[in-house]
Design a protein around this nucleic acid. Sequence first.
DNA 1: TGTTAGTTTGGGTACGACCAAAGGTGCGGT
DNA 2: ACCGCACCTTTGGTCGTACCCAAACTAACA
Lengths: 259, 259
Amino acid sequence: MTDSTSAAAPNGSVRRPVQLTPMQVPKASDVLADDLRERILRGEFPEGTALPPERELVAQTRMSRTTVREALRILEVQGLVQIRTGRAGGAFVQRPGEESIASTVSLLIRGRQVRLAALLETREAVEPACAQLAAKYRTDTDLEALDRANDAIAAEGTLAEFLQANVDWHVAVAVASHNELLTGFMGALSRAIYAATDNQGFIDASVRKTTLRAHRSITDAIRKRDAAAAVRRMTRHVHEYASAVLEVEDRTEIEVPGD
Amino acid sequence: MTDSTSAAAPNGSVRRPVQLTPMQVPKASDVLADDLRERILRGEFPEGTALPPERELVAQTRMSRTTVREALRILEVQGLVQIRTGRAGGAFVQRPGEESIASTVSLLIRGRQVRLAALLETREAVEPACAQLAAKYRTDTDLEALDRANDAIAAEGTLAEFLQANVDWHVAVAVASHNELLTGFMGALSRAIYAATDNQGFIDASVRKTTLRAHRSITDAIRKRDAAAAVRRMTRHVHEYASAVLEVEDRTEIEVPGD
DNA sequence: TGTTAGTTTGGGTACGACCAAAGGTGCGGT
DNA sequence: ACCGCACCTTTGGTCGTACCCAAACTAACA
């Protein structure tokens, strides 16, 4: 060990200067989790099927139950399985959904204290695109969801109800784009922006009216499959909203409720 | 228990018909994880500080070590702590970064078999916005990174090198926007698109040349803080790239390497 | 003085036992 | 024959203990 050349070992055999990498011993639970994850993503287990019971996995893998459980827990946190207790319980395979993106984004937003301005900037980037695609790909079901959200806004309920309906509409637009990535992003953004604008009561009757009109006009463009108009109006709508918010509360840090 | 009205208990006290909700017993490890996560996000522990050792947490929480470990593992998966072994080891607090978003998005993409077209659509939404903000907020350091990536493209290396340099440039644009959310999204998208276009060799010398020219021209707009030009050129560049890719490989499923 | 063999602190894994939840089963009553 | 309830079985959740391994510190030894 003191020198890197060959040396005679006490018993006369030759010690070769074996060079080995700094070593990295992956944790057993990670290995199992990686394997299972790979198989799940590969589609080896259809959605809804139950993985073998923990004790069964223990037998198969020769790992301890602790390790197996940790692996399953990892997959659960990543949204790849859902664990249920009870007799017919177990780890049920599921495809990761928008919630997993939304919660991760929430973590990033809170953890890094992303500025409200950055949130709004991002929305200004994403939503017009959603509107455009929605105009291209929307189904009648999508339109119904949009109309329903607009009706809820017109209902003039409490502030919370208004904000919720507002979020619902925006998410509905994203859903209508039939792009799961954009939908996931928008879901995350909406939640965060909702939380950020919740307490600050700059929303009065006129704001609601303006919002409703803008939504209806955009919904119309989507209905008519007028992508250009949808983009234009959405861009304007989101930009105005952003300006309004920033005017009231400039340079504010965000608070997002936990997932 | 057999009847829901009041009844005299054996000892003479009255049994009131208490009505209780269907009950929801959260898992112990989740409770701990939630608590720690909340504190971390609240900034109670500065980045880099070590949480108490597992055995210490066991003493404080009166939970078993298994439970404590599971909680820490959850936080690790969520990117909130990093666990190191050894004497000075432990769970070290860290803020979730772009990688956590990227890996989550990768899971979504693979798990839901998001179409390549959807990926490109999303990029067409996000990147122009990045370019715009980059033109507004770029620093000299950002420009250096952009130029470096462009030089790497000009170097005419292997396909892998070209693709990597390409990704680097796009990510550099996102970074220059100084918007952590957009950066995170772009990181995830780039990785996925990189993986999707890797094996299909539709990239020849002319494509490289075109790419380089587009990048240089966009970089220039960013350098001159010409937001409008940056948006316009980036929109065009990304759109052309998307068209080209889709022309070659239409309706293909994606493969993304694990995180 | 430098090397090396403990020593200490901390995470990683393994068992084994028992609790809790939930579906299934069978016995007894009607 | 049918219904209801007590009991059993399966499967995850928690606990406690013991032991191993990695890393950093310490002290003895050459």
